[in-house]
């Protein structure tokens, strides 16, 4: 546990919860995000294929160390492979009004694909290693408006609930022995019978929730006590500041020489 925590007191339950977290989840979420932003911007500015490959491999090693490598590979592939295919078609096959494979086109496609892959792999690694409860708590404890923390928390936790409700609605329609037609008419029928009940019930719920939230003083006009702790330390704060500086300065330092050549 770090020397400095962001709020109030730490009860036994919270302490046990933090002990059960992996090494990355014990970091402040903003530290992970700041370092990731620095890595992505610097790698993009450098534009070196071996650096991009090293960053992607490093991300996979980190994911493997926390037992999320299969998930990272699966999720990344779903985004990166269609992107690579698209780049190959756009730059590898077609250029300057002609249609055919060129070496320059293939090289451009590979470089663009690798650039996108770094953003995807590092971004997804962040979402896999950051604990969503910690992220919401960190937003709440930051200087961001109180509404932002609520919106992030509510969306992340509503999503599985609404997915479950959609499943129940589908089951109910099956029990009613609804038969969906094929083609566009069938699609509109599905929208009507599955999406309409989902949307209406969700909106009904929000209409009921609003007065309850308002009655509890939301959005708060003053700082509120939170029982969840977000581990933080001076070292992490220093890392965040350095990372933000890297995001701003390193790309400029790397790119200025080539801009000079261009000018």
């Amino acid at each position: 546990m770090s020397s400095c925590v962001a709020t109030g007191y730490l009860d036994g339950g919270a302490e046990n919860e933090i002990k059960g977290m992996n090494w990355f989840q014990r970091l402040h979420p903003f530290t992970v995000l700041a370092v990731a932003a620095a890595v992505v911007t610097t790698t993009t500015a450098a534009g070196l294929w071996w650096l991009s490959c090293t960053v992607n491999a490093g991300a996979l090693v980190v994911a493997w160390s926390v037992g999320k490598s299969k998930k990272l590979i699966g999720l990344s592939s779903a985004i990166v492979l269609p992107t690579f295919a698209s780049q190959l078609m756009i730059h590898g096959l077609a250029s300057n009004g002609s249609f055919g494979l060129t070496q320059a086109g293939l090289q451009t496609a590979a470089e663009l694909g690798l650039r996108t892959a770094v953003l995807v792999v590092v971004g997804l690694l962040c979402s896999l290693v950051i604990d969503r409860h910690q992220l919401v708590a960190a937003i709440d404890l930051s200087k961001a408006p109180a509404q932002l923390g609520y919106l992030v928390a509510a969306t992340l936790f509503l999503l599985p609930q609404l997915a479950e409700r959609q499943r129940v609605i589908n089951e109910a329609q099956m029990l009613r022995q609804v038969k969906f037609r094929r083609g566009l008419r069938g699609w509109f029928q599905k929208v009507r019978l599955q999406a309409v009940p989902l949307v209406l019930s969700s909106l009904e719920e929000t209409a009921n929730r609003a007065p309850h939230l308002a009655a509890r003083g939301f959005p708060a006009t003053q700082r509120m006590t939170r029982l969840r702790e977000v581990p933080d330390s001076n070292g992490q704060r220093w890392i965040r500041h350095v990372s933000v500086l890297c995001v701003l300065l390193l790309p400029a330092l790397l790119l200025v020489p080539s801009w000079m050549d261009f000018a």
């Binding site: 919106l151 509510a154 969306t155 509503l158 999503l159 609404l162 929000t206 929730r209 939301f218």
Partner: peptide, 13 residues
């Protein structure tokens, strides 16, 4: 507040 409660549902939708 009524809009703030609507937004997460919209995002999930």
């Amino acid at each position: 507040v009524s809009t703030l409660t609507l937004i997460p549902v919209a995002l999930a939708l």
